[in-house]
Design a protein around this nucleic acid. Structure first.
Lengths: 337, 337
DNA sequence: CTGAAAGCGCTTACAG
DNA sequence: CTGAAAGCGCTTACAG
């Protein structure tokens, strides 16, 4: 059962393949009657031009934008990956691009250069998420000829566009809230120095203090790799060693949840005895501990902006500025006003 | 900046393009030395064969499996879509297929036939999710020449494979648990008659009664369209009209959560005054009301099995049976043993 | 073991 | 307005 091709349509319509091609592609130098006939035949025969052949034949080209995720897991409790994915996909659909999901890992990054991967998959531009400082692809993104929108990192390159909320400002806002409430001994549970967002959130935390002529106690900082279990341990240890601590700012909700659990284990109540503010507003945040106070960011919006950035770079529309992605401080039980 | 093609490699290696092609594709009738030289040159030149040309030239073809989601939203609180997606993607990666995400809606289904969509996107097989009885694509799936794995529906077709847990058995198990606890007035909050899973879950609910020589009270059934708000209303109304009801089986966790909220609004406690069992085990289920009892199913596994089914149909491997996707009854606070 | 040539299904200058 | 022909970058019988 051969797939009907342009020759079948041409024969049936009694014209040349060139005319079929032009009619189907909306060229104006085709007799309206001829066009109609061709369109009817094509429809009747259920004809759809072969994408591969199209991409080779002439100038027309379907553009494919890939979402490249580093370290994809089978679960996505924070909804972060899904949000970015659906945002990017939405833009692809609206802009008539193909959407492809590509995943990689540190190991795979070593064995296949980014450029080769993109060519093999016929990808024209990529939205990248989940990368960390030192990942091989990060360097390659700076040099590569394809447009790249990089989420939650801060790297410069010819075709590299950075997409994220203002992590410094967000962390500063969260910390300022705690300081204004009167807290002075505010600990921070951070992710990892390898994550750009961790550096920025630390800067914001620090800035909030500095604006009041204060400085955070360096002993109050712990890296927990965004892991709930590690956050529990770190919190237990912090509160034990430094009983003066009255508030904790965590660079992710999972770590904030860990902190709250630890607080509970010590017989205290988050939001009553120790204030806790997290980051992300993941779906379960509003349900736990009567509600975890947190910085809300919208991954769907990140995905949209990133996708749109890639699309525009692909089409030379670099003038119009893209919207910034906003954030919000959501106050719930674990750190009430 | 032209992309290096096979001719560049041939020239540089001092052989014909035919030889390059064979060497790169692992054909055995190539002198090992020649092969090595070609590989080295290709590597040096960062050469990657153009996928479009490859798919046209000869028999080799990269196969693309698409996940086709009907009614994709920007959020996925149940994690169901993400799970299926990552499962299907995993299989694609393992099987060396391209993974594409396609979405549709009732409206889009009307305007573009499934076959045309698949051809336009050069898709070779599809995993379909989110469809309902009466959707135009459902009928087309039965006839289409591409292999299709359809999740959570029950349709027969030449190239159509159904993937789901045994919804009847799962619903039966949940209901049996409630009956064994002594409940006799067990209400059911169902989704919609248009969803195959709703019909099956109702059958399971019914069967559990019948096995004890009983029958469920038809007045106790409500369709809430998998919506939390509607479940709240339905539960309030049910408990008001039928005070004898002591347990509720909901065909989704969101509806179970709605039921629990309604119970709370009436000054009662889920699991103490009224037992509630849900379905899905979404991420927040374990946190709400001290834990919602529910039927757990693993969407990642569904995605893997569906992807694998498509792959096998694509390669004529229809003999080896695919694993069934299992489920589990998870008992928590809202319906304790 | 190697290569010249045909062919895959399109698009697009170009000639008419 | 229409069509013959070249060309896109590959792969694969086929001949040598």
């Amino acid at each position: 059962m051969r797939r009907t091709n342009i020759r079948d349509v041409a024969k049936e319509a009694g014209v040349s393949v060139a005319t079929v091609s032009k009619a189907l592609n909306g060229y104006q130098d085709v007799n309206p009657e001829t066009r109609k006939r061709v369109l009817d035949v094509a429809n009747k025969l259920n004809y759809v031009a072969d994408t591969n052949a199209r991409n080779m034949g002439g100038k027309v080209e379907t553009t494919t934008i890939a979402l490249l995720v580093n370290g994809l897991r089978s679960e996505d409790p924070s909804g972060f990956v899904f949000g970015i994915l659906s945002g990017t996909h939405y833009i692809c659909k609206r802009r008539n691009c193909d959407f492809m999901l590509l995943t990689t890992s540190s190991q795979e990054q070593e064995s296949m250069p980014l450029l080769q991967l993109c060519r093999q998959k016929s990808v024209n531009g990529i939205v990248a998420s989940g990368f960390r400082l030192g990942d091989p692809y990060i360097d390659q993104m700076k040099e590569i000829d394809l447009p790249v929108a990089l989420i939650d990192m801060d790297e410069k390159g010819r075709n590299l566009y950075n997409v994220s909320i203002d992590n410094v400002a967000a962390a500063q806002r969260a910390t300022e809230f705690l300081l204004k409430k009167g807290h002075r001994d505010v600990a921070m549970l951070n992710g990892t120095p390898a994550a750009e967002v961790s550096r920025k959130r630390y800067r914001g935390y620090r800035l909030a203090f500095e604006k009041l002529g204060l400085a955070p106690n360096p002993d109050y900082l712990r890296y927990c790799d965004f892991d709930e279990g590690k956050a529990i341990q770190a919190t237990l240890e912090l509160l034990h060693r430094f009983p003066r601590i009255t508030a904790i700012f965590a660079a992710s909700d999972l770590m904030a949840i860990g902190a709250c659990r630890a607080i509970g284990q010590l017989g205290m109540v988050p939001g009553t005895d120790i204030d806790v503010v997290g980051f992300d507003d993941i779906p379960i945040a509003k349900y736990l501990f009567g509600g975890v106070s947190t910085i809300q960011q919208d991954p769907y919006q990140l995905g949209c902006v990133a996708g749109e950035a890639v699309y525009r770079m692909l089409h030379g529309e670099t003038d119009a500025p893209l919207p910034t992605v906003d954030f919000d401080l959501i106050l719930r039980r674990t750190a009430a006003p």
